[in-house]
Design a protein around this nucleic acid. Structure first.
Length: 308
DNA sequence: ATGCATGAGTC
DNA sequence: ACTCATGCATA
């Protein structure tokens, strides 16, 4: 009943500035037009599919993520910085057949649940980093230590943000434009993720994985900005009146209590969680998730001890 | 920019 | 039941 689609690509492929075809406006409003996209005129397949899940999902998001086996592999590093542009230079606006990649559909079908998102990176060598450098043969891979160096990541994040702004592109725009890059296994990302990348509020691994992708986009986008100008292709199909998710918020007093508990025991047992939940009059699941997120928060890059 | 949440993959 | 990447909703 659910299919994973990547509608935005059909008509916007090649355009690295969704909603900003002139490269001058730099406004966020236009982005809304892009995602769900143009599936309207061509096909109904691109429309977000209704299903019996709790919340509405935008089919445009998370699209294009390869299955568990189709992770992307870090490849193009920003050496002289031109390898990626070559593939993107010919930005022919030819409307391509609104189809999903075969590899993706098969991967999705093999899953019992809709795959809205998945890790974009390969698990790779997290365990072999400290091993024998000589025994680790990454020929094709241009993954040097500099790519995982927190300082390099930080520097890149900052450069990225500056150049992005210079291009007049919003974080959300970048996220959507990513799909147009058509890198294997890379779909779009949310504004949240781009924001977190720029502010280094992602895990180290996540930063390392996203860097080459964003770098590729940046280079391609700048190349396009230099040369091209596209026709304003826009229309928005903001459909559905489906129920939106409501964000529960934990009040300050409760939050303080949780933090106190967390300081003592970051990983309370199920029973402890239940106890805490009752004491604070919160749903157990809310408390559980809070602890999960708290732990995850601790592992984020910025100011993370031991990294720098 | 960030809080709460989901879901795949693991253990 | 947890970790991790990621996103919707909202401040």
């Amino acid at each position: 009943t659910y299919r994973e689609l990547r509608p935005a690509v059909s008509t916007l492929q090649g355009n690295l500035f969704p909603g900003l075809d002139d490269g001058l406006m730099g406004r966020a409003e236009a982005l809304a037009a892009v995602d769900i996209a143009k599936s309207g005129p061509t096909t109904s397949a691109g429309i977000p599919l209704k299903h019996d899940m709790m919340y509405a999902h935008h089919a445009g998001m998370g699209g294009g993520h390869a299955g568990p086996t189709g992770r992307i592999h870090h490849s193009q590093m920003g050496h002289p910085g031109m390898d990626t542009m070559e593939l993107l230079e010919p930005l022919c606006p030819s409307s391509l057949p609104p189809l999903t990649l075969a590899a993706e559909t098969s991967a999705v079908n093999s899953h019992p649940h809709p795959q809205l998102h998945g890790p974009i990176y390969t698990h790779s060598m997290n365990g072999m980093m400290g091993g024998h450098p000589a025994l680790a043969p990454h020929h094709a891979m241009a993954m040097h230590d500099t790519d995982t160096d927190p300082r390099e990541l930080e520097a890149f994040a900052e450069r990225f943000k500056q150049r992005r702004i210079k291009l007049g592109v919003t974080q959300a725009d970048v996220g959507k434009a990513l799909a147009n890059l058509k890198l294997p296994g890379v779909g779009c990302l949310s504004q949240s993720t781009i924001c977190r990348f720029e502010s280094l509020t992602l895990s180290h691994n996540n930063m390392v994985a996203l860097k080459p992708i964003l770098q590729a986009w940046l280079e391609a986008a700048e190349a396009q900005a230099r040369s091209k100008r596209r026709d304003p292709e826009s229309s928005s199909v903001l459909p559905n009146g489906e129920k939106k998710r409501k964000r529960t918020s934990i009040a300050a007093p409760e939050k303080r209590s949780l933090e106190a508990y967390f300081a003592v025991q970051p990983r309370p047992s199920g029973e402890k969680i239940a106890a805490i939940a009752e004491k604070l009059d919160l749903k157990k699941n809310v408390v559980r998730v809070w602890f999960c997120n708290q732990r995850q928060k601790q592992k984020r890059m910025k100011y993370s001890a031991g990294q720098h």
